[in-house]
Design a protein around this nucleic acid. Structure first.
Length: 636
DNA sequence: GCCC
DNA sequence: CAGTACG
DNA sequence: GGGCCGCTACTG
């Protein structure tokens, strides 16, 4: 029996071996020592758990790909932060920090005022559009053009001087599009965008055509035809000023940037725009990151080895796709088996649809009774994010796993009309809106939000004044904007460096990893996830160090500004995480900071958990359970 | 709401 | 315990 | 028609 179970577990790890997921394409592997045999439940610590689990995980130990989850190019590994560096960077963080908070505050203010009144003029009269292709349009395209016309779009029948915008079918490449145009269309200053730009503009108001996802396929750096004389030129706010990560995530939801006529592009040279944007950012730790990167490579020669194999090749060769004894579980129905295509960000043609579906999810999420419906919407959105092409029709949509009879037509509705009636409906209902708003506060969920709405409160201010808030909720309201503001990758690193520095002062052996979306390679994150462990250490030891030394010290230096949840000791349980907020020296935005205490024995499982994302974790855990095993952050 |  | 949170 | 992640952790 026990050996059977062990065998099953080994198979599970074999499968895991094949997961080149987790990684987002440009993966590198974290080979930092101890993760090796770490995905093992700590059989000594918890009696409840231990009896069913045998810790022999040799197989796991020999599968470094699995247990040492991949890290993005720049990661704050213990090894990477050589003594001395953190000090230096800490100093820099202090002195270079942008003093005035006003800008940041304002930044935090932007919120989604999304929905534009149906009849409003979206496209100013000075704009003139040429659609490519110009004839032989699908009915879908035609209806979108009609819709655009209703909102003020002027159309050109053919290329002429008057044309200010060339709108190219999202599936067309630049060269295809150019063939449709007269040989010599030299007028400069014409903006080239893909179809998505129009659809999104219809929905959210005029979009900034500089954004990556509006680029015509195959147009490498510029959205303009020819080398236009750049008029104004500041790169769009969301260009990749963040290391080598492919594309920054689209994050300015519903924000409308006024479109200037004859706007030219400057994205041809990413270096350039990055440097430019960095000036606006709070720090220039680009070089520092590069340095960290180099150190890391040096310290982890194994990275090279691992990177040599094309991950996909692991699926060929000697591996037979699943002949598991557990029936046919693996039809690809587990998203944890899919590689992350990193297609979700700005370049995804389904951007709009994804956003609306997520908004639907948010609405149902604010409603306790509908958590499963919310989940379905999120999963549908996530499925769409994996598509490379625009999904425009109900038929197309219905083919995708995770999208069914109810959501498929909604997708078509979104793409054709640029809006979703059900969503508008909800947004027009103030009670509904308020509930969604309330539930966005940290510490407030569907139940509480519903109760408050029922009690007649309508603003966050009401809550502050009249309601008995928990301490956490008060903080959540007080820093509502802060907590919804995305954190640039570079800033995540700075928070990490500060923690690491404090950590090393207590004990050089303590190790720290930054997890979450940072570890998955995202250009920005919603919060900062830190994992702390130490070779050979147990939960108690880590917990003690963190709670007795690290946290007090960070508080004292003004870095930690709030404590939302730290655990309490009981007879059986040692607290295992700390949640709170931190602020970079000289700045004013509070950032959510989560710290996970991890016994060395559990590092593997903890890294899986702390790296996520949540869909991945749920999928992987579901997979485990189908195989009669359970996976959590402590082990398998 | 989707999937088995 | 229910509610909320974490990935 | 039942399951959808976790014998997850923390708060009140």
């Amino acid at each position: 029996m026990a050996s059977q179970r062990r065998k099953a577990r080994e198979e599970f790890f074999d499968r895991l071996d094949q997961l080149d997921d987790l990684s987002d394409s440009e993966t590198q592997l974290d080979t930092s020592s101890g993760a090796k045999d770490a995905l093992r439940p700590d059989s000594t610590r918890r009696s409840t758990r231990s009896k069913s689990v045998k810790p022999s995980l040799q197989k796991a130990a020999s599968s470094p790909q699995v247990l040492t989850a991949p890290v993005p190019p720049v990661t704050l590994l213990p090894a990477a932060s050589a003594p001395g560096r953190p000090t230096a960077s800490l100093k820099r963080a202090r002195s270079d920090a942008v003093p005035p908070s006003s800008k940041l505050k304002r930044n935090a203010k932007r919120k989604q005022e999304t929905v534009v009144p149906a009849q409003a003029l979206i496209f100013p009269p000075e704009m003139c559009f040429l659609f490519v292709p110009n004839r032989g349009l699908t009915s879908l395209q035609q209806s979108q053009i009609d819709e655009a016309e209703k909102h003020g779009a002027r159309l050109a029948a053919e290329f002429s001087k008057n044309v200010t915008h060339i709108v190219v079918d999202s599936n067309w490449t630049l060269s295809q599009a150019l063939e449709e145009l007269p040989d010599k269309c030299h007028p400069t200053g014409i903006t080239m965008v893909n179809w998505t730009w129009v659809v999104e503009s219809l929905l959210y108001g005029l979009r900034d055509s500089d954004q990556h996802r509006f680029r015509v396929k195959g147009a490498t750096g510029t959205t303009s035809l020819h080398q236009t004389s750049s008029t104004d030129k500041r790169p769009a706010p969301s260009t990749d000023h963040d290391l080598m990560v492919a594309e920054p995530k689209q994050r300015n939801v519903g924000q409308t940037t006024p479109q200037k006529n004859g706007r030219a592009a400057s994205e041809a040279d990413p270096e350039l725009s990055r440097n430019e944007t960095d000036k606006n950012a709070q720090t220039d730790d680009q070089d520092e990151l590069d340095l960290l990167q180099k150190e890391m490579d040096k310290n982890d020669p194994a990275i090279e080895d691992l990177m040599e194999h094309d991950p996909s090749s692991k699926f060929e060769g000697n591996y037979v796709i699943e002949q598991s004894s557990n029936g046919n579980l693996e039809h690809g129905s587990f998203s944890c088996m899919n590689k992350n295509e990193r297609n979700r960000s700005s370049s995804n043609p389904n951007q709009v649809t994804i956003r609306l579906l997520n908004q639907m999810a948010e609405i149902y999420d604010a409603n306790t009774a509908d958590q499963w419906r919310a989940r379905a919407f999120k999963q549908a959105a996530s499925a769409l994010a994996r598509q490379k092409e625009l999904v425009a029709t109900e038929e197309q949509a219905a083919k995708i796993r995770g999208i069914g009879a109810s959501i498929a037509p909604k997708i078509e509705e979104i793409v054709t009309k640029g809006r979703l009636a059900r969503l508008d409906e909800a947004n027009n209902d103030p009670l509904h809106k308020t509930r969604v708003l309330f539930s966005r506060v940290y510490g407030v969920g569907g139940a509480q939000a519903a109760a408050w709405v029922a009690a007649g409160y309508t603003t966050l201010d009401d809550l502050k004044r009249y309601v008995g808030l928990t301490p956490n909720q008060r903080i959540g309201i007080e820093h509502f904007d802060d907590f919804e503001t995305r954190i640039p990758r570079a800033e995540v690193v700075q928070h990490g460096l500060i923690v690491d520095h404090a950590l090393k002062q207590t004990d050089q052996e303590l190790k720290m990893y930054i997890g979450g979306s940072f570890r998955r390679g995202s250009p920005d994150s919603g919060d900062i996830d830190i994992l702390i462990t130490k070779e050979g250490a147990g939960m108690e030891q880590i917990q003690t160090v963190v709670m007795d030394t690290l946290i007090p010290q960070l508080k004292q230096q003004g870095f930690i500004v709030a404590e939302l949840a730290s655990g309490h000791w009981t007879d059986k349980e040692t607290p295992s995480k700390w949640m709170g907020a931190s602020v970079l020296p000289g700045q004013s935005i509070w950032r959510r900071l989560d710290i996970l205490f991890v016994p060395w024995e559990e590092l593997g499982a903890a890294l899986i958990y702390w790296t996520g994302n949540d869909f991945f974790n749920r999928s992987l855990r579901l997979l485990a359970s189908r195989k009669k095993m359970r996976l959590n952050q402590h082990g398998l």
